[in-house]
Simulated scan of single mutants.
Amino acid sequence: MGSRPVPKYLSTSECNVDIPGFLRIHKDGRCERLVGNDIIPPGTDTSTGVISKEVIISHESKVFVRMYINSKTCIATNHKLPTLIYYHGGAFLTESAASSTYHPTLNLITKESNLIVVSVNYRLAPEHLLPTAYEDSWEAVNWVATHVKGNGPESWLNDHANLQNVFFAGDSAGANIAHNMAIRLGLYPINDIKLAGVILLHPYFGGEVPIEGENLEYKTYFDQVWRLVNRPGVGLDDLTVNPGMDPRISSFGCSKILLCVGEKDKVKERGYNYKNVMENSGWKGRIEFMETKGEGHVFFLFNSSSENARMLRNRICTFINPNTSKI
């Protein structure tokens, strides 16, 4: 759901669903994704010195993670780093942890914030309706946690991950996932893993009742997509998409959130609403808020070299590393 005009959710003679430039679901059930298909293989990024690799974490589901680490850190010994578990966006329908949409930005975040990134490739709807993406994402958290004692299956995490300093992050639908994983971790702590913070970038939330200032045309599209990615009966006020309806929200699993929105983002009012909900929920934490002027939805993925994208990444860096000098 990038920076583009409000998509139209259509039905045609050939397709049950046709979202121009985004997705088609054909009458025979075949899903044709029109974005997020350009894959960049893992390896060494010469411009940042970051190396990446992929690890299958479930042979049953084929869920994998793409991991990132600074090459200089990788050869060091006993050097522990913050660990960022990242969930990609794409309305639960498109994109992947391996796509060209995410690889450049995660290389830059890895370098600039000096951390390990574990980017999760969860299964997509409509082939795998929600809550599959949430369950895959939770499985990834549990997989990371198996490295707490330094004897898990992945050497980068055993040798370099500080699992007392873990962050969840995501953009759009991925920010929705990050929020829901933080709720779940607060309710069901895992081993000795400690969630230090959550980073929500242009989050994907909704609700049955429109809120003040909300783009109603976009809300209509959003509502249709939400029904498309869910099983029948899951409504717009489900706890996973409308935090204001969630009685468990004060159990959020950490004490700080970085919430980022774009001034021209058509879902920004839901971000403002999220801030109000969290601040009035009884949650004992604080929200840092950043609005990027003049920018639309997840702009930082499509123009990672822009000054506004650099400033957003700098805010992420200082959120994770409060004592780090500005870039």
Rank of each mutant, 00 (worst) to 15 (best):
G213R: 00
G36Q: 04
P153R: 09
R313S: 04
G197S: 05
A97R: 01
I109K: 10
E269R: 09
K149Q: 13
V209C: 12
Y9D: 09
E14M: 11
V267Q: 12
V234I: 15
A140H: 03
I249L: 15
A309M: 07
E307F: 10
P82V: 09
G233Y: 11
E279S: 13
G285E: 02
T48N: 04
T240I: 14
V63C: 12
Y87A: 01
P189Y: 11
Y68Q: 09
F289Y: 15
T73W: 09
L115N: 10
T48Y: 07
T324F: 14
H297Y: 02
C15T: 10
C31D: 06
L108W: 08
M1I: 10
P126E: 03
V229Y: 07
T240Q: 13
T101L: 10
C254T: 15
C74E: 14
N78L: 05
E212L: 07
C74Y: 14
H59E: 12
K111Q: 13
A178K: 02
T146P: 04
I190M: 04
F300R: 02
L84N: 08
S250Q: 14
N323D: 12
D246H: 05
E60G: 06
P126C: 03
K326M: 11
V229C: 05
F302S: 15
L130C: 05
N158Q: 11
L187R: 15
V50P: 04
M311E: 14
L129T: 05
H202W: 09
D159I: 03
K111G: 00
K8W: 01
D171N: 12
K149T: 05
R231N: 12
T46D: 13
G170Y: 08
I109P: 03
R227F: 15
D45Y: 05
K80A: 08
V120H: 02
V17C: 04
N16M: 11
L195P: 03
R313Y: 11
V120F: 03
F300N: 05
N151A: 08
G235W: 05
E32A: 03
